[in-house]
């Protein structure tokens, strides 16, 4: 082949590849935009004050998702209270002391757990907590969300800690700092914004979970602040609205979806703000 032929061929391949990847990018963004616009279009009509604060009422009498918003908030908060300390603690362990067989085992289990469908976590908690307690509860729901959170938080925390330069640790060790102080005073602050980002992303992730809550928290038609009783959540409420036979219910499902997506968007924006203020 002549030089020019090679050159032309290369240019052609390059052009085709660029076009293909650009097309994929456009499709990805288009799908997201379509979904968001559709949710907005379908949902916005049904949103009003009553919808935000009332509890569900029989079809045709209005009602709202106030109790579901509160339920989601309570369960997400409780799940974070359980899941974040354990996840962050495990991540610190993996990064700082996890080079031996035990560390590798924990890492393997965490990675497997991340891949397990969330409905299986729901069944697990159902067997372990709901059956002995003889009823579904907000606590059982929170627990399944926490179990989903822990491996995600542990692995992101580990990654963030590993990003802290070795030289920084050595600087502290050279001053006569014991290992635990190096971890506590130097490594954790240096990795803090990354760890916070991981934590927020995991919160965003669990706030969209439905399957594990169906088994564990079930639902409730009332405002409920007691975690030992069944508790409503946005996702399960959406499921109920969407599977109902009436058009008004479907409209409420869209509206509740819009609220949920909005909340997740807010969390993601907060994540952005956290990542920005890096050194």
């Amino acid at each position: 082949m002549s030089n020019e032929a090679v050159h032309n061929r290369r240019k052609l391949i390059s052009m085709v590849m660029t076009t293909l990847t650009a097309a994929c990018a456009v499709i990805a963004i288009a799908i997201l935009t379509i979904i968001l616009t559709y949710i907005g279009y379908k949902g916005v009509a049904a949103i009003n004050w009553e919808f935000l604060v009332e509890t569900p009422k029989p079809v045709g009498e209005g009602g709202g998702i106030g109790n579901a918003i509160v339920g989601s908030a309570i369960m997400t908060l409780l799940a974070s209270l359980i899941g974040l300390p354990i996840g962050i603690g495990a991540g610190v362990y993996l990064a700082e002391f996890g080079d031996k067989w035990f560390g590798s085992t924990v890492r393997f289990v965490a990675d497997t757990l991340i891949g397990v469908p969330s409905i299986i976590v729901g069944i697990f908690v159902y067997t372990l907590v709901v059956l002995p307690m003889t009823r579904q509860s907000g606590f059982a729901g929170s627990l399944s969300l926490a179990i989903i959170m822990i491996p995600i938080v542990a692995r992101t925390t580990e990654e963030m800690i590993r990003l802290v330069p070795k030289s920084m640790r050595e600087g502290a060790l050279a001053l006569g700092a014991p290992q635990w102080r190096v971890t506590w005073n130097i490594v954790l602050p240096a990795a803090a914004s990354g760890i916070a980002t991981g934590a927020m992303l995991s919160i965003a992730r669990i706030s969209g979970e439905t399957a594990p809550l169906l088994f564990t928290a079930l639902n409730s038609r009332f405002y409920n602040f007691y975690v030992d009783q069944p508790m409503s959540s946005l996702t399960v409420q959406i499921y109920n609205f969407a599977t109902g036979p009436f058009e008004v219910e479907h409209q409420m499902a869209w509206a509740a979806t819009l609220i949920l997506v909005g909340l997740i968007l807010v969390i993601n924006i907060l994540v952005r703000m956290f990542t920005k203020k890096k050194y």
Binding site: S167, M168, E170, A172, A174, G176, A190
Partner: peptide, 26 residues
């Protein structure tokens, strides 16, 4: 031992803290 034998590294490695706290740390 490390408290007694101090070290200044080839590449500077300040902590992600204030100037004052860097020196106060040890």
């Amino acid at each position: 031992l490390r408290r007694k034998v101090g070290m200044v590294f080839q590449k500077s490695n300040p902590f992600p803290k204030s100037i004052y706290e860097n020196v106060a740390y040890g």
